[in-house]
Write a protein that binds this DNA or RNA. Structure first.
Length: 137
DNA sequence: GCCAACGTTGGC
DNA sequence: GCCAACGTTGGC
């Protein structure tokens, strides 16, 4: 199983909306590296939901529910979307500040490539962030 | 194919 | 609101 982190601005599409919807489409990604990551996702992979801009914290855990398919919001046919399902909310959201303060998370893509909206997470990083967020890994 | 100008993301 | 980092565009 692979682990990921996906960012969304909560005032555009936030965790509570995904929970209410029970399932969501992760679309609108327009960055080649993020696209490559989307294309590597398999059903059953886990992903953190990160609130960018407002909150700046990991607020929950999701599961990939459908592998990549053409993004319906994209006319060019170049970009892809995946479907996600919420699994569990963070009991104590893991903030960017806390993640940056943890030396073992120095190499995390969230820290190193701040602008990448879909990023891989290593198993070690996954465990640590889960612990910080009060999530079952 | 290079690179300057410009646009966007996202933290602060 | 600012700006650093980075991606994209377009002239050459």
């Amino acid at each position: 199983m692979n682990y990921w982190l996906m960012k969304s601005e909560p005032d555009v599409y936030g965790w509570p909306k995904l929970v209410a919807d029970k399932r969501g489409r992760w679309d609108g990604v327009r960055n080649p590296i993020a696209r490559r990551n989307l294309m590597h996702m398999k059903v059953g992979d886990r992903a953190f939901f990160y609130h960018s801009n407002i909150g700046k914290e990991v607020v929950g855990m999701m599961e990939i529910a459908r592998e990549h398919y053409p993004d319906p919001t994209d006319k060019t046919g170049k970009w892809v979307a995946v479907d996600v399902k919420p699994l569990a909310p963070a009991k104590t959201p893991a903030t960017l500040a806390a993640i940056k303060a943890e030396p073992r998370l120095k190499e995390m893509a969230l820290v190193r490539y701040a602008r990448l909206s879909v990023q891989p997470v290593t198993p070690a990083e996954w465990k640590l962030v889960c612990r910080m967020a009060g999530l079952e890994p």
